[in-house]
Design a protein around this nucleic acid. Structure first.
Lengths: 222, 222
DNA sequence: CGGGATCCGTTACGATACTG
DNA sequence: CAGTATCGTAACGGATCCCG
């Protein structure tokens, strides 16, 4: 890599932007927060970022110690965040809260996968109190599975299938976003299947805290 | 303005980046968080951003409702954040915490003013408990004045002179950053002048909370 | 002098094609 | 599948000029 543009300022904000301020970089981090991903997974989730750009960004993220190659098993290589890279989750979360205020463009392109949803949920879940909750939920958004595992006061959200879930929650992407941005939820916008009695209530409690946090941006009011 | 690049994604993170993801934009917001600024103030604080870029960015920020022109008095026009623009402070703060972990470049360029310092302090101050504190402090960093006004549980930090301060705290920019990033403070790195007896202790309490927050990124431990 | 607009060379981006 | 190579286009960066 030739040395890229840098602000060369002492300011910590500029130092951060030198690492993650390039176009696409924060969206790549967003998708990586959903769990390890292959090159092609990332390319799909980012709606057709040019392959050379994705390659460049992954090299830079690796050089800066935010991401690394890992063995995904079966001979495939995956990329995943390092401990340093994980620390961008708070930035990503604040961006999500801020961005939710704006109306989407007219001509939306739909992404090839919904890693983005898992990341937004993960970021929000880390900020709400789940101390009295415990369940495994499969969240099915437009047919794609997101695994929510709540236990011991910690929430783990990953873009992956959830084996043996307590509840299965199905919803469309547009409905989910709308609800988390303040639109009223109605029974026809989602379906909830309970496999372990009582866990549905816990799940709904969790979801209501998440959506309130995303709407208000402030854990204190959630 | 011709329509600029846009991710055109439904994802709230992408919607945020469509507004503030362009190069320089977040640094402009950073400087605006320190208070209303003239075109030239911004140009100085950003170490010589090209004038056309700054003009473009200000137009876009205005169109998107994040900033607006205002009358700075004496016939000068200034730019300031709107209520919507103010909401980027959490993003800027998370960037500062994240960026503080990285060593600065070898060949640093020094900015024409230290608005950046006021913003970082402002963002951090908003997250620490100041309920039992109350003072007006003039913070002099490399000769530039930052006003800290703490009262009624709220902290207001602005890049401006502070008339009649309770304490005057002087320090160099590099020292201030170093201390807030974990280096030990020593008496020779700063000077503290007390004009209202007792307020120096309050000020030092405040500063220790701020630096701990910036170092750890977590208010709970501060 | 502050607040830009214009011009132009350089760099980064984006789309497509191609390769191990 | 996981990238590399090429190339046209758009954005950036520096300089200069303009206007009140």
């Amino acid at each position: 890599m030739a040395k890229p543009r840098s602000y060369k300022l002492l300011c910590p904000i500029a130092r951060a932007l030198d690492r993650i301020g390039d176009r696409w970089t924060l969206l790549i981090l967003r998708d990586l927060h959903a769990g390890p991903a292959r090159f092609t997974d990332l390319q799909k989730g980012l709606t057709g970022i040019a392959a050379n750009l994705l390659a460049d960004r992954l090299v830079k993220l690796t050089e800066d110690g935010l991401a690394e190659k890992s063995d995904g098993g079966h001979g495939v290589t995956t990329y995943r965040l390092t401990a340093l890279g994980e620390r961008t989750l708070d930035i990503v979360f604040e961006l999500a809260v801020f961005g939710a205020q704006f109306a989407p463009e007219e001509d939306i392109v739909t992404p090839g996968n919904l890693r983005t949803v898992a990341t937004t949920l993960r970021a929000a879940a880390r900020r709400v109190d789940v101390s009295e909750l415990g369940f495994d939920a499969a969240m099915v958004v437009d047919g794609e599975q997101i695994r929510l595992r709540i236990r011991d006061g910690k929430a783990d959200v990953t873009y992956a299938a959830c084996p043996d879930p307590d509840v299965v929650f199905s919803i469309g992407y547009a409905d989910l976003l709308g609800i988390s941005e303040g639109e009223p939820d109605t029974p026809d916008r989602h379906s909830l299947e309970t496999r372990t009695p009582g866990k549905d209530t816990e799940f709904l409690t969790f979801m209501s805290r998440i959506t309130r946090l995303l709407r208000d941006g402030d854990p204190a009011t959630a």
